[in-house]
Design a protein around this nucleic acid. Structure first.
Lengths: 99, 99
DNA sequence: CCAACATATTTATATATTTGCATTTGTTAG
DNA sequence: CTAACAAATGCAAATATATAAATATGTTGG
């Protein structure tokens, strides 16, 4: 499928997904969730060293835009990559930034 | 290189690059520039059907963040992908959005 | 140099995003 | 049911972004 064949709404959806990812903290979150790992809000909030509510906000954005999915287990909510391929995006960008 | 090994500044640089891409018009621009194609500001502005100054603004953002490069030839400035791999990012996201 | 065209920048306004705090909602253990 | 913990939401202020109009700068041909 050619990139130039995308419709306006497809462009917008792709833009929203990328916009969701395009934040240092959220990229870091993707880093924690590589290889199918699942983490709770508290774990991520402690790993990042930012407020719980801020963490929840970031996770909500990533979930809302279809980057992450979540699964409740008791008190905890586990977040994980909805499409494991998405980890590649940041890896790809990182490679392009390092030169 | 593991995604989770990125430093703060690397995270920020990757975020800036993704943020630059994460806009419907700019994704469309990447679509026009696939396969090493080079286009002028006027060509892109006409293809997109938006103001010339807006087009220039978008191109400036993409260039500033290292997504595009440009080459002046006479009156025209040709823009093209700095890293051909970057086209894959949107293709990847598009695939993840269509299901 | 000057006219015409191509591109970039400035400016102002409207809109969106980020953040932490406070609060609320959901869940389990006792 | 209640206490304690986990997560989500509402809010407000600071900051950032998008857009178009107007203007400025750069380049070529005559």
């Amino acid at each position: 499928m050619k990139l130039s064949d995308l419709s306006i709404s497809q462009l917008e959806q792709a833009a929203n997904m990328l916009k969701a990812i395009a934040h240092p903290m959220r990229i870091a979150i993707l880093g924690f969730l590589e290889e199918g790992k699942k983490l709770t809000v508290t774990e991520i909030h402690e790993l990042l060293g930012i407020e719980q509510s801020t963490t929840s906000h970031h996770l909500g954005i990533l979930k809302d835009k279809g980057v992450l999915a979540s699964k409740r287990e008791g008190k905890n909510t586990y977040y994980f990559l909805k499409h494991p391929d998405l980890g590649n995006i940041v890896t790809c960008v990182s490679q392009c930034t390092t030169d």
